[in-house]
Amino acid sequence: MPDSNIQEGAYNYAYLDEQTKRMIRRAILKAVAVPGYQVPFGGREMPLPYGWGTGGIQVTAAIIGQDDTLKVIDQGADDTTNAVSIRRFFAKVADVATTTSTEEATIIQTRHRVPETPLREGQILVFQVPIPEPLRMLEPRETETRTLHALSEYGVMQVSLYESIARHGRIAKTYNYPVMVNGRYIMSPSPIPKFDNPKLDRSPALQLYGAGREKRIYAVPPYTPVKSLDFDDHPFEVESWTECCALCGSRESFLDEMIVDDAGKRMFICSDTDWCERRR
């Protein structure tokens, strides 16, 4: 969005008008009251396209204040173009401090990763969600998935996991791995790698999930149990690498694979840029 469109005073604080923010906050409160339940909300068109994080942006815009410090990451990095674009947007329309440090941030908006640095009470993690409905690829109809959630009829999800084991010998789902929240609702944790799922379980931070195009908000309050679905004899497992990070030596973080020459030589580097820098 060209800078010249944002003049002084032309937009409300954080872009959205106060009524819209109130509507979103009401949806957030409802979501927090029923962990994992998808609350429909009247999402607006934003200056960024659907699919680029409008849900996360609307949630952040509704909760951000001048005392906040905002961090925005995409694929774990602060400097990917989309993270840069969103951070610039809020710096302009919300006149708020921004940071690349997970520890210093009060609000962290993220696409597809949870920070490696453990979060603490008082922090809010805002997830960008493309498809909020965890059953969507098994049942395309919203009218039916709504009923399945209401009646706790989750057989179809367990069937898909069984089928994966029957075909591949293991549950082959690697990202957007479905979880059971507070023992009641099956939720999509957004397309984070399953590596990050354990971080959601009883996290001291508040997790908010925004899906702009599908117009749903859901939440996991602090210290809520979040369990990745599995079978007793095929328990949930996270990814692992034989290599360590080439820059900081970490063996505990999610590693990106870089192809460094024409012969296909590979190098592995922490996906979380802030985490990696701190260790060096």
Partner: peptide, 8 residues
């Protein structure tokens, strides 16, 4: 970028 999902 979808390289993290792809990495998984």
């Amino acid at each position: 970028p979808h390289y993290v999902d792809f990495q998984s």
